[in-house]
């Protein structure tokens, strides 16, 4: 059997909000080390990869590896009912046909039980090599969300360029052009809620990406105050948000290239 209890149920709520518009159905792959999920959007342009390590749960039991296939939109509707301080317990039988989600309020005064039908999803798992990226930008997640939203007014493509001076986001369209430049900056008083912008640069990078997908990724903003954007020329970019201290959610996006 599989059973896992997450004391911070709102993490699961934020994860579902982050992926439900990008991916419709996905497998939660459960093993003794934790839960992982990998899925592409329907156009195969982007990929989401989630990791929740077993040690981040206060109870985790997985007798044998199982894949629990779920419709993420249905799951997000159920998980929206999680109170912010509720704990969430996920359970599944050995074949993953039926999944139970149980929400408990902090004082134990309210318990709700939900059951979702598991789906048989035949998904291709891609092998993502571990890569040393040429440029790694860490910045406030809310700032990244705002830049994606603001530049979408002008065009559908953003050119992200890193140099030792900083990082620029530029877009152009029929209306005109827009460019936002960020310089490296220190965090304000080491306040985790006001992180600065930092750039680890091996080599400068300049690549084009579809703003539509980057905007989907920024639905993960409530998960963390910072986001990390890793890029090398000619390969997909990675946008990573930590999931508490138990894992991460990574979004990979294929670049736009000159025809």
């Amino acid at each position: 059997m599989f059973e896992a209890r997450l004391p911070q149920g709102d993490l699961l709520k934020k994860i579902l909000e982050a992926v439900k518009d990008l991916v419709t159905d996905a497998n939660f792959d459960c093993s003794s080390t934790g839960i992982s999920l990998q899925a592409m959007d329907s156009s195969h342009v982007s990929l989401v990869s989630l990791l929740m390590r077993a040690d981040g749960f206060d109870h985790f039991r997985c007798d044998r590896n199982i894949s629990i296939g779920l419709n993420l939109l249905a799951m997000s509707k159920v998980v929206r009912c999680v109170g912010n301080n509720d704990a969430v317990t996920m359970k599944a039988d050995d074949n993953g046909d039926l999944v139970t989600l149980m929400f408990e309020s902090q004082d134990g005064s309210k318990v709700s039980d939900w059951q979702l039908r598991g789906l048989d999803i035949d998904s291709e798992r891609l092998g993502i090599p571990s890569t040393d990226y040429s440029s790694v930008v860490t910045m406030p997640s809310a700032e990244f969300a705002r830049i994606c939203r603001d530049l979408s007014v002008i065009g559908d493509t953003v050119v992200i360029t890193t140099t030792k001076e900083g990082v620029t986001f530029a877009s152009k369209g029929e209306l005109g052009t827009g460019k936002i430049a960020l310089r490296q900056s220190a965090a304000i008083d080491d306040d985790a809620d006001s992180p600065g912008v930092s750039i680890e640069l091996q080599e400068p990078v300049s690549q084009s990406f579809a703003l539509r997908y980057l905007s989907f990724f920024t639905k993960a903003t409530p998960l963390a105050p910072t986001v990390t954007i890793s890029m090398s020329n000619g390969v997909p970019l990675v946008v990573e948000y930590p999931v508490g201290d138990m894992g991460h959610i990574r979004f990979y996006l294929a670049p736009k290239v000159e025809d």
Binding site: V45, L126, Y252
Partner: peptide, 14 residues
């Protein structure tokens, strides 16, 4: 013109 590449063209199936 720029064209959108596909993510599975970069990463082979595991």
């Amino acid at each position: 013109a720029k064209v959108q590449t596909k993510i599975d063209a970069f990463y082979l199936g595991a």
